[in-house]
Design a binder for these strands. Structure first.
Lengths: 211, 211
DNA sequence: TTGAAACGCTACGTTGCGTAGCGTTAGTAC
DNA sequence: GTACTAACGCTACGCAACGTAGCGTTTCAA
């Protein structure tokens, strides 16, 4: 699995001027491959993606692609992780519930408006089945999301909005689970109001309190 | 798509003694195919499933299989829907929260202990991408789940456990979304206690009430 | 200038897909 | 029993993509 560190550089070496590996031959080839993959993904999705197609479109030899990526799944995951790299953290707006709703809406936006949604649809089966891919996805995406929510929770607790015993992971599941469930399986709409509705259902404006 | 009604019988005809179509040649072949598919799914998963493999194992000619199922996806979905056919409704135990937790735990049990989990992992991408498969899945699975939860909600409201304005679909998403999210993407554990924890987090024993 | 890493290219063997054409068997109706 | 028809079996394709081997060529940096 070369996905995590395609250039093989930048780890133990002396840091030279402006990361020379980013402009070397290898990096150029890398970009050609990923750009072509992105284009092809946009057109035909993960299912229609072929290594041969990427080779033709990018001008890079098929064998070169196989020297880096084990399979088309590996290739698609590389694009996914690359696109997700800059997720960012949810800003402090002074309102815990608004911030939580923001997490939800940003995720929906991500799935609806970019390639990521399409890639996720095609990759979810592979991620679910392949432990190696699953690990990569967890480290690069899932864990970051939980960490983001954890920050919100800590802010919320210090504001007195949330109980001190809130489980950040469970809360993340409650915020994101419904999104993916709708996106993958139920097909129910994921519009702009969903975040607010979800959060207000979650926090006491929905069901009544315990008996 | 032949999945929904493979035999083509039993719809508009006169009901004869004990559904003769169930013992005819066609039904026999059907069983051979589905049994072999089930075996192969258990061994190699949806990804490793091949129509040729099913043909060899079942003794049924490959062409015969293609006369019924468009693709291996169609085949796997047929097994899935067949296995899910007898989902059943959640019994009345007098406790709304226990009933909701039961919905969660049953779903987890279904995913963990049977072929269904494995099939779902392999099919979720196809369901997400193919509108026809998605429709079949919604009608046969999603809608039934929502209907079940709706009954629970109505009971809960009449008991005074739930507010009268609870949205059954949103509640279903909140109960099942986290399960599938963990199962497909996050990989966090789905043990027996999950249902109770989820429900108690949902209903006021988790986060504090609104500011 | 030179040496190693990276790349290009051709040519394979293989699997699995999905279909065509035609003969054969098993039930059904008379 | 005979005849008819739906269902099935079988062989033989053409095709797309996979993934690899082997060897020559280019790039870049020391």
């Amino acid at each position: 699995m070369d996905v995590a560190n395609p250039t093989g550089a930048g780890e133990g070496g002396i840091v030279e001027a402006a990361r020379p590996a980013d402009t070397g031959r290898r990096a150029r080839t890398e970009k050609l491959i990923l750009d072509a993959t992105r284009e092809m993904l946009a057109e035909v999705g993960v299912n229609g993606l072929t290594v041969e197609g990427v080779a033709n479109r990018s001008g890079v030899a098929k064998t070169t692609i196989y020297r880096r990526y084990r399979s088309k799944t590996d290739l698609a995951l590389a694009v996914l992780l690359d696109s997700v790299e800059y997720l960012g953290t949810t800003p402090d707006v002074g309102d815990t519930y608004a911030e939580l709703a923001e997490v939800v809406d940003r995720t929906i936006e991500l799935l609806n408006s970019t390639l990521i949604g399409r890639i996720m649809q095609g990759l979810v089966s592979e991620i679910a089945a392949d432990p190696e891919l699953a690990l990569a996805y967890r480290e690069r995406v899932v864990n970051r999301r939980v960490a983001d929510v954890r920050r919100l929770v800590e802010r919320g607790i210090s504001r007195g909005d949330l109980r001190p015993d809130v489980d950040a992971e469970m809360l993340t599941d409650l915020l994101l689970g419904p999104i993916y469930y709708r996106f993958f399986l139920s097909g129910s709409p994921l519009d702009e109001g969903f975040g607010v509705r979800l959060v207000s259902t979650l926090f006491s404006r929905g069901p009544a309190q315990g008996a």
